[in-house]
Amino acid sequence: KKYKIKVYVKDKKTKKWKKIKEIEVDTKEEALEAIKKLPPNYEVKIVP
């Protein structure tokens, strides 16, 4: 079972969220580790 991490950042001009990358991992633990490495201003969604 794979997890997709969708990473969004808020556009300063439009104030809208835009997706900047998608990370695919195998476990939820890996997903949480990957999220920890991202800057705090990123919004993250984990999709099972």
Rank of each mutant, 00 (worst) to 15 (best):
K1C: 12
K2N: 08
K2W: 06
K4R: 12
K4T: 13
I5R: 00
I5C: 04
I5T: 00
K6Q: 12
K6E: 15
K6Y: 15
V7W: 04
V7T: 01
Y8A: 00
Y8F: 07
Y8V: 00
Y8P: 00
V9N: 04
V9D: 04
V9Y: 11
K10A: 04
D11Y: 06
D11S: 10
D11N: 12
D11L: 06
K12T: 09
K12P: 12
K12V: 11
K13L: 12
K13E: 10
K13N: 08
K13Y: 11
K13P: 03
T14D: 04
K15G: 14
K15F: 04
K15H: 13
W17T: 01
W17M: 05
K18G: 03
K18D: 02
K18I: 14
K18C: 06
K18A: 04
K18V: 13
K19H: 04
K19D: 01
I20A: 03
I20Q: 03
K21N: 12
K21M: 15
K21D: 12
I23R: 02
E24D: 11
E24A: 08
E24L: 13
E24S: 12
E24C: 12
E24M: 13
V25Q: 01
V25F: 14
V25A: 07
D26G: 09
D26C: 09
T27P: 01
T27S: 14
T27Y: 03
K28M: 15
K28Y: 15
K28T: 07
K28D: 04
E29A: 11
E29R: 09
E29N: 06
E29I: 09
E29S: 07
E30S: 05
E30Y: 03
A31W: 06
A31K: 01
A31G: 04
L32V: 08
L32I: 11
E33Q: 13
E33H: 06
E33Y: 04
E33D: 11
A34D: 02
A34N: 04
A34T: 12
A34S: 06
I35S: 04
I35V: 10
K36N: 08
K36I: 07
K36F: 05
K36R: 13
K36G: 10
K37T: 10
L38K: 02
L38I: 09
L38F: 13
L38T: 02
P39G: 11
P39T: 06
P40D: 07
N41A: 09
Y42E: 03
Y42R: 10
E43Y: 15
E43V: 15
E43H: 15
E43K: 15
V44N: 02
V44F: 13
V44M: 06
V44T: 08
V44W: 15
V44H: 08
K45Y: 13
K45R: 15
K45D: 05
I46A: 01
I46W: 08
I46L: 09
I46F: 06
I46R: 02
V47Q: 07
P48A: 13
P48D: 13
